[in-house]
Nucleic acid binder design. Sequence first.
DNA 1: ATGAAAGCGCTAACAG
DNA 2: CTGTTAGCGCTTTCAT
Lengths: 338, 338
Amino acid sequence: MNTPRKTPTMADVARLAGVSPMTVSRAFKRDASVSDATRSAILEAADTLGYVFDSTASNLRSQRTDFVAVTIPSINNANFADTVRGLSEGLKERGLQILLGYTDYDIQEEERLVEQLLRRRPEAIVVTGGRHTPRTRRLLENAGIPVIETWDLPDNPVGHVVGFSNAAAVRSMVDHFVSVGITRIAFIGGDADRDTRGTDRRAGFIAAMQAHGLDPDRLIAAGTPPISMREGADAMGRLLDTLPDTQAVICVSDLSAFGALTECQRRGVNVPQQIAVAGFGDYEIAGICVPSLTTINPLPREIGKRAAELILDVLDGTQEGPATIALEPILMRRQSSP
Amino acid sequence: MNTPRKTPTMADVARLAGVSPMTVSRAFKRDASVSDATRSAILEAADTLGYVFDSTASNLRSQRTDFVAVTIPSINNANFADTVRGLSEGLKERGLQILLGYTDYDIQEEERLVEQLLRRRPEAIVVTGGRHTPRTRRLLENAGIPVIETWDLPDNPVGHVVGFSNAAAVRSMVDHFVSVGITRIAFIGGDADRDTRGTDRRAGFIAAMQAHGLDPDRLIAAGTPPISMREGADAMGRLLDTLPDTQAVICVSDLSAFGALTECQRRGVNVPQQIAVAGFGDYEIAGICVPSLTTINPLPREIGKRAAELILDVLDGTQEGPATIALEPILMRRQSSP
DNA sequence: ATGAAAGCGCTAACAG
DNA sequence: CTGTTAGCGCTTTCAT
């Protein structure tokens, strides 16, 4: 038996069950009207043949795919994973699946990815960030489906927005440090503008320092985003070597902040007595490491949840114009700072 | 202008460019023979109309989807992310995309997911783990495409395998501890059989202890998999409270092991002098935390790379029967143990 | 290098 | 509750 047995189709199932293909089609939808006897006969026939529904055909004919495209910068990032989880749960009730793609923090890669995703005809698309190549923007504008930008508050949104201001979030951290008398503050972040959220956080740091009349030049370039724990540690080493009078350091993420903490441990530098350390993201590690890490919780799960609600409203026609939902990140004071 | 402008089709592009739809189709494939002049006219027409290729139609007609389905237990796990990266890079050269799904460490959820994925007609499917529901197994066997099980060495594989023995990997850790004179060893892991790899690791621990004639009953149940850092810390607290003479603890993953380390720090328990701690996975944190963490590197990237090679060989017809590729995890000795 | 005809497997639309 | 007809947008196949 060497013939590459083609997978059975609905017609095969219909023949075996003694009904028309249309009835088989109905038997596979939950709301359709098929008698219980007929349905179970059909499901049994399908099982016998090992039939698996072909959604490529269904999608083409019905012009519906029942999935939502989502782009995130990276697999393996707890923050974005939380956003995806919020989205996923919110969309599940309506039978919408998520098709996920990774941009690797690169807006060129985002362009390729967005086109790939749109070719599959999603019902809506959720992108991370508000800065895109001109072509990505055009693709999104012409897609004819709801577009949601997240994790940012773009000046000129493509469509809907569920996000927060990365710059303002970092400003709140600077304000906090200044309010407790700390003035010599450094920032550890990426050395390229690849990660637009990281860039916004750095810009927010500089602006906040200037607003307080403080020196905004204690900037340590830690590498190409995303910044790893190791790169955070190395950057902290350079900071301690070159600007030893620094009183506090704000890191672009909790991962680099944790790396920075470990470097302090290795050098016997006491945190927060000798230097305060803050992160961004409120990853699990921030709450459990010793000392625990002062950070900013950007409500990633909530972003996903709100985006899902928005998508359902737009698809239902409940939501009229483009919506912008601005969330307020929460400053989490912990042991690594006053 | 309120009419829901339908997206343009190849026919629209063909009309504007003054050619047949077939020529447009060819212009969008790289290897097809179309004159340069015609092609650029077509691409310009497509751009003018904002045309985006419809892969639902292409997939149906050509009976090819050019993607490989991959199931992993969790988004946001650096080990599985590495496997996906290895796969992704290996498949890219052949123009194969990855369609990713998450089982949430649940073989029931895996069943739903596998069926969803197979409905989209992938060219191959890669699953994490070698234990499935009977129906999942049947679906995979009848799918008519290459099936690869990873991160395990199943007794009775569905098709191809790229993995390692979780039990043997933990045994090597037990052997190491015994060889340096440590005999009172505990294991921190999940309290359910939900995570099959975690279950295998615990079984490997028990078997190894018995083989050495040692007490295999220092088992601390840490919660429902995946075990978080916090759950690792709580479990370590219980271990120190109830079995204070324990000399070493092996944790089901680096995340729980790091949590355990922090609990020791909080209690002033010295690692490794008072108790040794080992993890599993060789996540980035294992190499950078203080003390750094003894662990096992299961070569996650290599698993993905080999799986990709295997898929290409099978699709090319180069690989004949089912292959089993067994990798050897590497024990990483670091500061948290002798 | 380009075109014409046919059809992938399913379901919308209409009938009964 | 069930069946018939047609066609979604592309690409295979066969021409020229």
